[in-house]
Design a protein around this nucleic acid. Structure first.
Length: 897
RNA sequence: GGGGAGUUAGCUCAGUUGGUUAGAGCACCAGCUUGACAUGCUGGGGGUCAUGGGUUCGAGUCCCGUACUUCCCACCA
């Protein structure tokens, strides 16, 4: 009969309830009066256009774990949330949206465009943060910062102005990556090289001075022929060098162009001759510069060909123009061959279309503080977890190129540079560069470009804390909370973001060395999460449809379950193969935790542990579980210190399930039944464990812990505010409260091992469910230990009595740390033959181990060179094996009769 | 082309400075409605630690080579 109705934990209902309580209770607020030590994390601001994905869940779970743990450890914890205006990404989305309504932004003024974009941002911008609430994030929403907030804009512009003044920012006409779809320049990091299948065309140009002779050239881009201004060959190329100085006829538009010699041309590629289109290829551009060649730009901003390409190609897209020019070459008899050719093409990360190298006027940043940025990481001032990302970081900084920071968009921080109205824009001395603009704006025109989104993000940790405004820095407690403790992000933005934040902080917050640097760096550690992939290892993406909906998962498994599951599958240093089964395990863990607490409560209110009184003397299984608990605390401290969340979660789950529930609680039931007077003491120990467990688990599964903390009555107020004892602290506390036998747990371990061995024996001979069978022994067991634990053994294993007999012959026998025991088999092994075989195998294994160990110990080198404890270990193992073997031989001898 | 990471049970991964007989979870098989929990319990099978050398008394662990996987960077028209 069941005493109680089945009951289950109403997970999502409780989660919603507690999140509301926390927010209303101000749990997440940055402490008003900072005290002690500050611990802050700046959340990587999600894009306002973003959709919550699995990466956000993992990333924010980790940050939440860290910030909650810091709170428990009594630190002033502040988690700064925010959103990123998302530059191109938002502008593209707004324009698509407007197009549906028949509105085209090219017909609108900049102000009107901005208004639409702001509306869009305001409508969708907070969705993702709101979604994150379901996960239980404890960031201080009242301090939320958006990258286009007025205050943050001042940060960004001040950064620009100062970098300009210091000579790091300049304007120049350079070859940049042009996205013809978004019609803006993009940075090198936003270009993804992709292998694309195309054709390599072998074509020939007639040599003007030598009628009937041709120079052959290979190209993948025949549509750029109108932009050709020369053909280059290697000056020492015997096939071609006599042609240098002569000319070829460009077929369309018809023109004679020179043949030049340049050693950048690869002799062994294609025909060894390279057509030079300086406006549309970086290598060609460089060659063109060297030879003072004209730059013939035949493309419009949208990627179509312009009038310079000639009337036949003008207006065509790049793709159409390629087809057309191939046809034209064919017609002219100049196309010799086309072969399939796979080569890598630069693709715009945003539009997915090939970028176009384009010469244009742009703003560039020469990175400041490159060497010191390397140094702070190399010297461990900023620690990377996992460490190997250091190499990627350092390598990138080694080959760093100037960064094109201007974008031809309206959505973003507009470049704070003004030119005299109608004046010459190239005259730098006439420019006005300031955060607030010129006092007489009517006489000036502001630069049209905006800054790359990542430029604004580079100031995130300092900007959110008020930099550079001294008053704002004061109110944000910059001194107290900066630098942030840790940055939690993906390794894919190590260049985009991590490196740039470090350089900006070093540039602006001080130039000191040594100790000073500790207050300058933007974060003391960077934890790189893995990228979440599907079970087949593919990146999760919308197009593949392999990404589960995060909110559905939270509905299904609860926020606690999702958090626990995600952490358990996220080992340090590797990508995460997503497995929904883990989330289920997470939920199951929570359910079991709830039931374990429920069991405690069902023992009666009179024992409800307001005071947590342990027994006067703690020993035996009580001491063992408490020691394991202390050890668990220590393991968690280490794991969290090293950002080993995977290991933390695994350790706590193992302790709870295996040590506490399956072993300790089951024994408690037996002890309480056998000796009701021990009830209060036993439950007291359970309370100590459960209370500590709820605290330990709070960072990982905050909701259920809060719920149980309240129902169990373990403390007043919010769980997060109760200071968490370290393993050492807990040990001291226990020693202070009771006579705590923290000594050897060997007897309990022996008991546990014996239980396991006897259960296995019973199962293997078909007695798993028989509890009324006698257990036999022939008198050689360690009675003292057995007596103390006999009733536990009886119930845990399931036997009626111990029958001492003269011989174990014909019985199924097993060696245990507490002695040799036997059962009378049921059906499958009536004469004990099966177990005898097992014993024979065991004896065999023991003999070979003994032989190996004897050999080892007789080896003089081993005894001399191995450490003493290893030698001693081998000796004691040898002895144990010999003893076990003797015992088995004795049993086998007896049982063979 | 340069660099990183990896290869341990069917799957996902642990495995501390080299030291007893290599672990966990999932999956699988068998048994169990047991007074918290079947979202559970008990038991079980399953690994030549990718491969070839080397160092060592001793190698999953350290060194060198090879193969494969994967990521990043650069890029030849």
């Amino acid at each position: 009969m069941r005493l109680h109705m089945k009951e289950n934990y109403q997970q999502r209902q409780k989660e919603r309830y507690h999140y509301g309580r926390w927010e209303n209770g101000g749990c997440f607020l940055r402490p008003l009066q900072p005290f002690g030590k500050g611990y802050s994390i700046a959340m990587p601001p999600p894009n306002v256009t973003g959709v919550l994905h699995m990466g956000h869940l993992l990333n924010n779970t980790i940050q939440d774990v860290l910030i909650r743990y810091a709170r428990q450890m009594g630190q002033c914890a502040f988690w700064q949330p925010g959103t990123d205006h998302a530059g191109i990404s938002l502008q593209v989305k707004v324009e698509k949206e407007l197009q549906k309504q028949g509105i085209f932004t090219k017909n609108l003024s900049r102000e009107e465009c901005l208004r639409h974009a702001c509306n869009y941002r305001d409508a969708y911008g907070n969705i993702i943060l709101d979604q994150l609430r379901h996960l239980g994030v404890s960031c201080d929403f009242s301090k939320k910062v958006h990258t286009l907030d007025p205050a943050y804009c001042r940060t960004v512009l001040a950064g620009f102005v100062e970098l300009f003044r210091r000579g790091y920012i300049y304007r120049g006409r350079r070859m940049v990556n042009w996205c013809p779809v978004s019609q803006t320049a993009i940075s090198d990091e936003e270009v993804i090289m992709e292998a694309r299948r195309g054709k390599l065309y072998r074509i020939r140009y007639a040599i003007a001075e030598l009628s009937g002779e041709y120079l052959e050239v290979c190209t993948t881009r025949p549509e750029t022929i109108p932009g050709d201004v020369a053909i280059a060959v290697h000056p020492s190329d015997l096939r071609h060098r006599h042609l240098i100085g002569k000319h070829v006829c460009r077929p369309f538009p018809k023109k004679e162009i020179p043949i030049i010699g340049d050693s950048d041309v690869l002799q062994d590629f294609g025909t060894g001759a390279l057509k030079i289109t300086p406006a549309h290829d970086p290598v060609d551009f460089a060659i063109g510069q060297r030879h003072s060649l004209e730059c013939l730009d035949i493309l419009n901003g949208d990627g179509t060909l312009n009038a310079l390409a000639g009337s036949e190609l003008e207006g065509l897209s790049r793709e159409d123009a390629r087809e057309k020019s191939v046809q034209m070459l064919k017609n002219l008899g100049l196309l010799l061959e086309e072969e399939d050719y796979e080569h890598s093409v630069g693709i715009s990360e945003r539009s997915g279309k090939p970028i176009e190298p384009r010469l244009s006027d742009q703003w560039f940043l020469r990175y400041p503080q490159v060497e010191r940025a390397k140094e702070v990481v190399r010297k461990g001032l900023i620690q990377f977890f996992p460490r190997h990302w250091e190499k990627t970081y350092l390598h990138w900084l080694d080959g760093i190129q100037d960064w094109c920071i201007s974008r031809q968009l309206y959505w973003g921080h507009r470049i704070p540079v003004w030119y005299p109205k109608g004046g010459d824009r190239t005259d730098v001395s006439a420019w006005h560069v300031s955060v607030d603009g010129p006092p007489d704006p009517e006489n000036w025109e502001q630069d049209e470009d905006v800054l790359d989104t990542w430029f604004s993000s580079a100031f995130w940790p300092m900007g959110t804390m008020g930099w550079p405004d001294p008053i704002a820095m004061e109110t944000h407690h910059f001194q107290f909370y900066y630098p942030t403790a840790v940055l939690v992000t993906g390794p894919d933005i190590i260049f985009f973001w991590v490196a740039r934040m470090i350089m900006m902080a070093l540039e602006f917050l001080g130039r000191g060395d040594g100790e000073d640097l500790k207050n300058v760096i933007p974060f003391r550690a960077v934890y790189f999460t893995g990228i979440i992939r599907d079970s087949k290892g593919r990146k999760m993406s919308k197009s593949l449809g392999n990404s589960p909906e995060p909110l559905d998962l939270i509905e299904k498994y609860g926020a606690d379950g999702v958090r626990f599951g995600l952490l358990s599958m996220a080992p340090i240093g590797q990508d995460v193969l997503f497995d929904e089964g883990r989330l289920k395990q997470g939920r199951n863990f929570c359910t079991k935790l709830w039931h374990a607490c429920r069991f405690r409560m069902l023992q009666g209110d009179d024992f409800l542990p307001k005071l947590l009184l342990p027994p006067q003397r703690i020993s035996g299984v009580d001491a063992a579980i408490l020691l394991a608990l202390i050890q668990l605390c220590e393991q968690l401290e280490t794991a969290l210190k090293n950002y080993e969340f995977h290991s933390a979660v695994q350790k706590v789950e193992h302790f709870f399930r295996s040590d506490y529930c399956d072993w300790f609680v089951e024994i408690c039931k037996i002890r309480m039944k056998a000796n009701p007077s021990l009830r209060a003491e036993i439950l007291g120990v359970q309370d100590i464990v459960l209370r500590q467990l709820l605290q330990l688990l709070h960072p990982f599964t905050p909701f259920i812990c809060e719920e149980l903390w309240q129902t169990m009555g373990y403390g007043e107020g919010f769980l997060q505010d109760v200071s968490l004892l370290t393993g050492d602290g807990l040990k001291k506390q226990l020693e202070g409260l009771a006579d705590f036998d923290g000594g050897t747990t060997a007897p309990v371990e022996n008991l546990r091992e014996t239980v396991g061995l006897l259960r296995a024996l019973k199962a293997s001979i078909g007695l798993a469910n028989c509890k009324d069978v006698p257990m036999y022994c022939d008198g050689n067991w360690e009675e003292a230990a057995a007596e103390e634990h006999l009733f536990i053994l009886k119930e845990m294993v399931g036997f009626s009595t111990v029958r001492v007999v003269n011989s174990l012959q014909g019985l199924s026998t097993v060696l245990t740390p507490l002695g040799t025991f036997a059962f009378e088999a049921n059906g499958s092994d009536v004469d004990g033959a099966k177990e005898r075989e097992k014993l024979l195998r065991e004896a065999e294994a023991l003999r070979s181990n003994i032989a190996a160990n004897e050999k080892k110990l007789s080896d003089v080198k081993f005894c001399q060179r191995a450490p003493a404890e290893v030698v001693a270990g081998a000796k004691s193992l040898l002895m144990k094996n010999q003893k076990d073997l003797e015992e088995i031989e004795r049993i086998l001898h007896i049982s063979q009769g």
